[in-house]
Simulated scan of single mutants.
Amino acid sequence: MKITTPFAMAAALGIALTATASYAREVRVSYGDLNLATAEGQKKLERRLDQAARQACGFDEMTTGTRLRSAKTLACYKEAHAKARNDMALAIENERLGG
């Protein structure tokens, strides 16, 4: 499946994550093992999505000679994290509706 948005829902299989075009990394986050009707399940999914956004954008990769992240990396992470929160809300609503 080709994903063109930073994060996109992928049916019941999970959430596929692709960073902005300049990074173009795809990360798959599954949540089939979580009960999204509970706060605990939602927190676990939120942590997984945050880690995936960090991985997709290279957020934890340091450049030699600096501890600062590039503006592109920060923008990618912020965009990916915001989109992940929307996708998470869709997943929770989908589970609530029994889908």
Rank of each mutant, 00 (worst) to 15 (best):
K2N: 10
I3K: 11
I3S: 09
T4W: 04
T5N: 07
T5S: 13
P6R: 01
F7H: 03
F7I: 12
A8E: 15
M9H: 10
M9F: 05
A10L: 03
A10K: 01
A11V: 00
A11R: 00
A11G: 05
A12L: 00
G14Y: 02
I15C: 03
I15Y: 01
A16M: 03
L17W: 03
T18A: 07
T18Q: 13
T18D: 01
T18C: 12
A19W: 05
T20K: 05
T20D: 11
A21T: 12
Y23R: 15
A24E: 13
A24H: 15
A24P: 09
R25G: 03
R25D: 11
V27L: 04
V27H: 04
R28D: 10
V29I: 12
V29P: 07
V29A: 11
Y31P: 02
D33Y: 12
L34W: 07
L34Q: 06
A37E: 10
A39G: 07
A39W: 03
E40S: 10
E40F: 02
E40A: 15
G41A: 05
G41E: 13
G41V: 09
Q42E: 14
K43C: 04
E46D: 06
R47K: 08
R48A: 00
R48L: 01
L49D: 02
D50I: 00
Q51F: 02
A52P: 05
A52D: 03
A52H: 01
A53D: 03
R54I: 02
R54S: 04
Q55E: 11
C57W: 02
G58C: 06
F59D: 04
F59G: 00
D60Q: 09
M62T: 14
M62N: 11
T63M: 12
T63V: 09
T64E: 10
G65V: 10
G65T: 13
R67F: 13
R67K: 14
R67H: 12
L68F: 10
R69H: 08
S70K: 13
K72M: 15
K72G: 09
T73E: 06
T73W: 07
Y77N: 07
E79A: 12
E79N: 13
A80G: 09
A80I: 14
A80V: 15
H81N: 09
H81M: 11
H81P: 00
A82R: 12
A84S: 15
R85P: 03
N86M: 13
N86W: 15
M88G: 12
M88P: 06
M88A: 15
L90V: 14
L90A: 14
A91T: 06
A91P: 13
I92S: 09
N94I: 01
E95D: 15
R96C: 01
R96F: 14
L97T: 11
L97H: 13
L97N: 15
L97D: 07
G98D: 14
G99V: 14
